[in-house]
Write a protein that binds this DNA or RNA. Sequence first.
DNA 1: CGGTGTCTTGAACACAGTCAATCGGAGTGG
DNA 2: CCACTCCGATTGACTGTGTTCAAGACACCG
Lengths: 228, 228
Amino acid sequence: MALAALQVPRLRDSADALAGANHELELLTYTPDLHGSSFVFGRKQEIFGEGEEARAVYCVMTGAVRSYKMLTDGRRQVSAFHLVGDLFGLAAGPLYDQSAEAMIETKVMVFSRRQLEACAQHDVNLAYDLWAAALRQLEHMRDHVLLLGRRSALERVAAFLAEIERSSGGSESFVLPMTRRDIADYLGLTIETVSRVLTQLEAEGALIRVGARRIRLRHTVLREILCD
Amino acid sequence: MALAALQVPRLRDSADALAGANHELELLTYTPDLHGSSFVFGRKQEIFGEGEEARAVYCVMTGAVRSYKMLTDGRRQVSAFHLVGDLFGLAAGPLYDQSAEAMIETKVMVFSRRQLEACAQHDVNLAYDLWAAALRQLEHMRDHVLLLGRRSALERVAAFLAEIERSSGGSESFVLPMTRRDIADYLGLTIETVSRVLTQLEAEGALIRVGARRIRLRHTVLREILCD
DNA sequence: CGGTGTCTTGAACACAGTCAATCGGAGTGG
DNA sequence: CCACTCCGATTGACTGTGTTCAAGACACCG
């Protein structure tokens, strides 16, 4: 549910050239007066860091990004993965409240926050769509809070796989674009637990693994684990 | 940090009559053309339910509200407590993604979502403030995700107490306006663990209890537990 | 091949959960 | 005024899920 919440539903009913493409992306690239510049980040490269001045908002063109917070003792919590078309870097105050890093080579569009806010003053559609994007991310975080607060390791991994599959388009199998560490830090678990749960799910017939990263889900079995 | 994030910082630099009062409240009640109606809910009364049509946005005038999600087997996760001046009921889609209940007798202002969005089309300040309120709630949820995913029971309770104290104004001691069950469901713990941690914190001299609800924090000791 | 990073598996442990009994305070009624 | 009930909170003993620590398997790349 989480990643899906960041994917973009139809906001305005206008037919558009990018039908099927992500709306958050479209929104920003097709708003006049809004000149984003594209930028490429390498694997593990930091895009912005917690505590830095929040000068820009980003949109993933290709690749994948993780947003996370770190405690001084090294504990890390990934709050979201951003895939193609997703907006990230939204901050309430003058500073970023979390860091963002490219998981693989990633191309992003960068929009000046100041300019974005200025444009939103005139362009009602832009303002509305930014508002809607923030609300979708808010709902995603609420789902994630439920997952972290009240779900077992088995349920967390199952929900995560279903989420990734949904965002990977309707193909039979899909590839996990992140490491076990990323998954663990997203689900509030350890990499060992993630690994064990995956083998358990495979043993129960809920999925088939091809190598460590490629997975095919058996929804009939998986559904029982997730309940709701 | 969570509740504080919902409290409202200065958004516009205009001097205002309600200096010191909550801005989210002020914002809505002082926007022309926006006619909210006030309503009173009794203790444990549902204000809206998950899955219902999201027709309104609410603002707490007096009392306290909890927002939560429930699983079919009864597990509950409280995502936020809303105190005086807080906005709640923000939804991305046509339906509420969570439920809201009055914790004590609570007076709210109700604003039609449709009307609110219509007003925001004309009133740039309103649009901006709604956007800012959503972002603050988003940051609050990210903090909460970190707490649930990576913090121990001791740290969770300590962080929670600090959060409540901050939102209760600078008095020496404060009263917890919610039950142990609410606290547990907010922190992703059980009531027994919350209770045990409170006695432990008292034993370590991090706080002083007066009855079950009134608490006075010793910040010097508490700081060590929280780290960052 | 050897080397490194990622992933898996195993055994022991610890933190928080479960189950159950008890305590305490607020409200009610005899 | 006291006894009673009800609900919330605390405490204790035990259990279990997920963590920790450690070893080994696997895969990719030089």
